[in-house]
């Protein structure tokens, strides 16, 4: 089936399978920033924005986004670079597999929350699991990124 939607600020027309997930369709079309992690919407590495809200793309049917707006890490490269630099400055990036998903959640959080405290940050990012870092260095990086962004 054909879907028409706004992907990273550009209207695109894609041929998809009705059974495909958004993650599968994105990766098949060369947008590999969103990763496959758990298949059950539990880990956050496939996070993208659907109508500006973070969603697990492994649990969103690709057909759903017809007529809607999808933003992936490929569409927020400036923020991704600044977040990536903040992470690397703390040694928090590690294997990097969860970083693009974290970037997407942070991009959404910045729009939704005003001056969040640590508790609010942890809560907002809770769905972005990381197995390498122990989270502490990520939190250091996120605080620095948010502080620098203002």
């Amino acid at each position: 089936m054909t879907i028409v939607f706004t992907l990273n600020d550009r209207e695109v027309t894609w041929e998809i399978e009705p059974t495909e997930t958004l993650l599968q369709a994105l990766r098949r079309n060369g947008l590999v920033g969103a990763k496959e992690g758990c298949d059950t919407a539990s880990c956050g590495v496939c996070t993208v924005l659907l109508d500006n809200k973070p969603v697990p793309s492994c649990a969103v049917p690709a057909a759903r986004v017809d007529g809607h707006t999808v933003t992936t890490v490929e569409g927020v490269q400036d923020q991704a670079r600044r977040i990536g630099e903040a992470m690397a400055a703390e040694g928090a990036d590690q294997c990097g597999y969860c970083t693009p998903g974290l970037v997407m959640s942070l991009v959404a959080m910045e729009k939704e929350l005003d001056q969040p405290d640590d508790e609010q940050i942890r809560s907002y990012l809770a769905g972005n699991m990381c197995r390498c870092s122990g989270y502490t260095s990520q939190m250091r990086a996120v605080r620095k990124y948010l502080g620098g962004g203002r």
Partner: peptide, 11 residues
């Protein structure tokens, strides 16, 4: 408010 994560709660 604590279920899995914002992503899952959005869908």
């Amino acid at each position: 408010e604590r279920i899995v994560g914002v992503q899952v709660r959005n869908i």
